[in-house]
Design a protein around this nucleic acid. Sequence first.
DNA 1: TACTTTGTTTAGCTCAAATTGAACGAATTG
DNA 2: CAATTCGTTCAATTTGAGCTAAACAAAGTA
Lengths: 175, 175
Amino acid sequence: MSHEFQNDADSFSGTASAESQPYAEKGAAPVDGIEQFIEQMGMSAQADGVPRIAGRIFGYFILHGGPVSFAQLARELKVSRGSVSTNARILSAIGFIERVTKPGDRQDYYQLAASPYLRMIEGYLGRMRRMQNILGQANENIPETMTATRARLAQMNHFYEVAVKSNEQLLKELT
Amino acid sequence: MSHEFQNDADSFSGTASAESQPYAEKGAAPVDGIEQFIEQMGMSAQADGVPRIAGRIFGYFILHGGPVSFAQLARELKVSRGSVSTNARILSAIGFIERVTKPGDRQDYYQLAASPYLRMIEGYLGRMRRMQNILGQANENIPETMTATRARLAQMNHFYEVAVKSNEQLLKELT
DNA sequence: TACTTTGTTTAGCTCAAATTGAACGAATTG
DNA sequence: CAATTCGTTCAATTTGAGCTAAACAAAGTA
């Protein structure tokens, strides 16, 4: 096995090994670091406008890393297959996780992407450039006569230019 | 007047000066750069998980800058006083706008804050530190034996450390 | 004191997005 | 070919948040 996750290599919670469920029972509060982390990632995601389940899945992969089957995700996170389907697709579209195949296994497997954090920065950059776009339009459409307004827009644009450069730099550093 | 906004110094849309309403009539699409910018800021905010009206108010202030009365905001953006109340409070809590008073005037006035963009970065920093917090907890609660997991968490933490430093640097640059 | 103006708060409506569950099609296996 | 298994999709439900309108409190003004 490529990772040393618990004695049960296929599962956090040992669902496969019968009765004992050290955490994640019912709708109870997180009972240990694992559950807690996953849950916090969910909350965090939600706060950032991302579906909570996507956050939980991402959290799960940060902890687990290695290839995890679609079914296992649904089982361990206790969500419907539908949710796993959509949210895993979201995550892999962003580039946080990626699909992998196991020869002779029909199931879908996912694993943590190589550098999910770079994608995070790329996300920021995307939003900033979108803002610069809006500013560009404003610059075209707002009359010359409104000099103070145009000055503020220019200032705002300047901010984004510096910020974009800074994050591009950061991206390089982390590569 | 401290700003050269249209001939009507108190209003974008000249509501005060009777019938003409060059833009912003009914629920119609934006008809010029001003309206368009405000609306795009609203959409942008919404996409970032911020109430749309907060975004529109912020957009309004980027364009207008100067002290604007509470009532005027509600009137020109065509939103309820309740919405103005809550959203202006949000924006001033973040530090994007600030309340000012006019002697002998009971109304609330708001104006664009001195450096709203710095606050934006501070916002990023806050979220990143919150993530580092979560990672700190995980580091405490996750058993030593799960070395690969802990390695991934450490890597994640490293990312945030670098990112935080980078943004602190950016903050300095812009000050 | 009655009346107006101003901002906040609260209850309720609306709307969008998340999540589920079931139906479905594709692939596999017996 | 039946019977499973798997992932996607779609309809329905739930949830939550934004927004409004109305009630309200505070602070003038007549």
